[in-house]
Design a protein around this nucleic acid. Structure first.
Lengths: 99, 99
DNA sequence: CATATTGTTCGTAAAATGACGAACAAATAT
DNA sequence: ATATTTGTTCGTCATTTTACGAACAATATG
């Protein structure tokens, strides 16, 4: 924790999360997963108007931010919210927005 | 509201807000303003380790996203949260985060 | 009027983002 | 063993983001 560093860890953390949420496609995925526990990316490809490689990138960003996790299941991959980090995100945003 | 459009307005709106919040400097400003009603950008320039032109850009982004507003006051500019949109942002994030 | 003070705008540059199709890897099914 | 399904990775490209300093505009102060 360097001294001259003005920005707090929480500010950095919530900015990191917000950045990951800063695209409509990614919010679509997050909302879906917050409603139905899991989904397969194939389902998303069918519905979303983007190439599967692009979707893959978006999912990777959500994964890198810790918001979702993917579990290999036969030929497909099952995506779910990362419950632990999701709770953390809830708390962080609550902290920054509610007061 | 076009038919083939999968993404909802709320998803787009919250993504827009999240994008604006997706930088530590901007979260710093937002947190400050959520605590102390207003500030002058000069105060920020003193504290933050970035050029004033860069700060100006960040403030503009927050303004464009509707999160803050600037009021000219003599030689300086007073920045505050845009209360109305801030409430909207609170509601949107609450909705998406299930809080 | 001259001169600070304050912030934006401009020009520039490096890096990141978002998108695509093609190629690839892994696993299942034929 | 070959084909099919599923998703990632690669190469590419255009656009956006982040950052800086210099120049500029507007407004106070001497």
């Amino acid at each position: 924790m360097k001294k001259g560093d003005i920005l707090t860890d929480d500010q950095k953390a919530v900015a990191r999360l917000a950045k990951a949420m800063g695209h409509p496609i990614r919010m679509y995925v997050l909302e879906l997963l917050s409603r139905q526990t899991c989904c397969y990316s194939g389902d998303l490809t069918e519905v979303l108007p983007i190439a599967k490689s692009t979707l893959s990138q978006h999912l990777k960003e959500l994964k890198d931010a810790g918001l979702i996790q993917g579990e290999i299941e036969a030929p497909r991959i099952k995506y779910c919210l990362d419950q632990e980090n999701w709770k953390l995100a809830q708390d962080l945003f609550k902290k920054f927005l509610n007061t």
